[in-house]
Amino acid sequence: MGFLLRWLCALGLLTATYNPTQWNYLMWLRGDGRDQLPLAVLAGLILLIGYVIYLRATLRSIGAFGMALILALVGAMLWVLWDYGLIDLANRDLTVWLGLLTVSLVLGIGLSWSIIRRRLSGQADVDDVEE
């Protein structure tokens, strides 16, 4: 349940920033956001804090190489689905949603990796040792 919650929060962060619908921060900023500049800045800073938390934790736990491996794995899976005709990547909205799901999966794994590794190997990170 912990990984699912971390992944859903990453997906929420990404989709709150941008998605193919009109309900996202960037579309709001283009429209009414300029009229409500203090609120737009506050919302932007909240999103930035979320990105810093997720990216820092992901880079510390799996690093850039781990992120690239996960992206490559998901990309290969999408390629197989496309090759068998199960998804149509010509649909722009579907492609954006798949990109959001992919990046959120990377961030969710990155935030959960220490917990996953501890369960698999039985080894705790130095940061995890309780005093």
Rank of each mutant, 00 (worst) to 15 (best):
G99S: 04
G44R: 09
Y25G: 02
G33W: 00
V126R: 11
Y25T: 01
T102R: 03
T102N: 06
W23M: 01
A124V: 04
N24I: 15
L4I: 05
L47C: 05
L39W: 08
V106L: 13
L11F: 13
Y18N: 04
N91H: 11
W97E: 04
L45S: 14
G63S: 04
R34W: 05
N19T: 14
L73W: 03
G122H: 09
I70A: 06
L48F: 01
I87C: 07
M1A: 10
L101F: 10
T17G: 12
A90I: 00
S112K: 15
A68S: 12
A16V: 10
L11V: 11
L120E: 06
A43Q: 05
E130K: 10
W7C: 00
G122D: 15
A124K: 09
I49Q: 02
R60H: 10
L14A: 09
A72D: 11
D93S: 07
T58Y: 12
T102L: 08
T17H: 11
I116C: 08
G85A: 07
G66V: 01
V106D: 12
W82A: 05
R6E: 15
W28R: 08
L4A: 14
L39D: 08
V41F: 01
L59G: 01
L81P: 07
W23T: 02
L55D: 09
L37A: 14
R60G: 03
L94Y: 13
G99K: 01
N19W: 11
L29G: 03
F3Q: 12
L42A: 00
G31P: 15
L11K: 10
L11P: 06
Y54C: 09
D125S: 10
G85I: 02
F65N: 09
R6S: 15
W79I: 05
L47Q: 08
T15W: 08
L71A: 06
L37V: 07
I87D: 15
V126F: 10
W28Q: 07
